[in-house]
Computed example of a mutant assay.
Amino acid sequence: MDDWLKDSDEVGPSWLTVDLAIFTLRDDQLMVLLVERGLDPFRGMPAMPGGYVQKKENLRDGALRELAEEAGIDGSQLHLEQLGTYADPGRDPRGRVVTVAYLALGPDLPIPTGGTDAARAFWAPAARLGDGTLTLAFDHQTILTEALEEVRRKIEYTAAATAFCGDTFTLTDLRTVYQVIWGQELDPSNFRRKILNTTGFVQPTGDQRLPPTGRPAALYRRGQAWLLNPPVLRATTSGQRG
C-alpha cells in the first residue's frame, strides 16, 4: 500500500454486507419482505433482511444465510440475482459499509419468522414504498424503490414473471402477476395472444385446472427462453407499446 494511503485520515476500515429485496404475491398483492431491527442503529425500524458477509462465504451464500436466519425462509428455490452495489459513505452510521443488494422473487412465500438480530419479520405491501407511509432504516428505501422498478422492467423483457407462479400455472395466473406488478388492467385476449406469440416463454403441460365453476383452464409451465422476443411491454399514457 502506498505511504500516502497508510497515513491518510480519509482511509478507514470498511465492511461488506448483503441485503435482500424479496418480492412475492400474496392475496393478489405485491409484497416485500421486511424485518424489524432488534439492535442499534435504527432499533425498532423496518429494514431489508441482510447482514455482514462472513469471512469464508461468498455473497450468494451470505444472502441465503441471512434470509434463513432473519426470516426463516429457504431462499435456495427462489429466483435470486444481484441488484446492485450501494456504497454511499453515509449510508450506515457505524462506518463505511458497502452492501451488495440481491433481488429475490418467489410464488406466495410463507409467513416469515424473525430471528437473530431481527425482532420480527413481516410482509408489507410494496405499494407502501412510494406512498410515504413507510420509513426504512439505512438507505433501504432507495434500494427497494430501485428494486421494485427493476421488477417492473424485468417482466417486460424476461420470463421473470413466471417466478411468481408455481411450477404450473394458467395464463390467467400469469396475467394476474403482470396486472399486480404494473398496476394495470390487461385485456385477456390480447395478453393471451402476446404470451403465446412470444417464442419459448411458456409451454403447455397438456393438463387442465378444473375451477369450481366455468370452463377448465389449460396449464402451462415456463419455457426455455429467458429473454423474451418480442417483449411484453407495459402500457403508456398514449396506449400499449409494442
Rank of each mutant, 00 (worst) to 15 (best):
I181V: 15
F169T: 01
T172H: 15
P204H: 06
P211G: 09
P211I: 02
R192I: 02
Q184L: 09
G183R: 03
Q208K: 12
N190A: 15
E185K: 14
L196I: 07
V202I: 06
C165I: 01
T176D: 14
D207F: 08
G214K: 05
C165E: 02
Q203G: 07
P211D: 12
P212N: 13
P212V: 04
L171N: 10
L210Y: 15
I181R: 00
T205I: 05
P212K: 15
C165W: 04
F201I: 01
T168L: 03
Q203H: 03
L210S: 12
V202M: 00
T205E: 04
F169H: 08
Y178N: 02
I195S: 07
V177S: 02
D187Y: 07
W182T: 02
V202C: 06
D167E: 15
P204Q: 08
D173N: 12
R209M: 13
T198Q: 01
Y178E: 05
R193A: 12
Q203D: 04
V180I: 15
L196T: 13
G214A: 00
D187P: 02
I181W: 00
G214I: 02
R175I: 10
P204S: 04
P188W: 06
L171P: 07
V177M: 09
D167P: 13
G206R: 12
G166F: 13
Q184I: 01
C165S: 08
T205C: 01
D167T: 13
T168A: 09
N190R: 15
T170A: 10
W182P: 00
T205V: 00
D167F: 11
T172G: 15
L210R: 13
F191W: 09
T199I: 07
R175S: 12
G214F: 05
